[in-house]
Amino acid sequence: MKTLIIIPAYNEEGSIAGVIRDIRRHTPEADIIVVNDGSTDRTEQIAEADGAKVLTLPYNVGIGGGMQTGYLYAQRMGYDIAVQMDADGQHPAEELPKLIAKAKDYDLVIGSRYVETTSYRSSRLRRIGMVFFSGLVSLVTGQRFTDTTSGFRAAGRKVIELYADYYPMDYPEVESIVYLKRKGCRITEVATEMHDRQAGKSSITPWKSVYYMIKVTLAVLMSAIRYDRTAVSKP
């Protein structure tokens, strides 16, 4: 099974080297691609020095466009499994084998903080948002999800193709689950530990989180009622 680890990175020079080293230690057989989304710091040089392949976008396209570049690469290069992982050290590499093993039986495996009790703790506001989105997605898809905002995921070939074709531009995690369910993908969650970020700071500010809630809710509802044109042409 050809496996690719996709790490989208925007100004992550402080943590990228550690993340790459951890991946090497726990899944030496997997290839690593860092999608450098127009960083203005030394992210590209550091990732290359650590032996990772780097795709450098000429300007900052945002998390959705960056992540899709990784999936597009996985699709073109014929990878069977693509794992997406944050560059800030939130997602521990020791959980990778667990995700990759499950990805043989499912189209998408989501690393969840909440399936079982893990040591992850977050602010109350953040928890409310997560409970809201879990409820919304569970309602719309008819499948129970505990951690819809998790960006720690392993995708099989079917999902690689679908994500290369369409991926939401910003705040993509929640909507991309609904999109896959609509396309008839089998999705599961596994319990994974998550760390606090090791360097840099979260991009979510209070105003942005209001926009985030509204935008994602609209996107999820629209995705749920969208007429599926491609399903007719692609069996």
Partner: peptide
């Protein structure tokens, strides 16, 4: 146009690599 520019950027990035 935004979607087209994004796809062009992605294709170019992969070609460059």
């Amino acid at each position: 146009l935004t979607a087209q520019v994004l796809r062009l950027t992605q294709e170019l990035t992969i070609l460059k690599e």
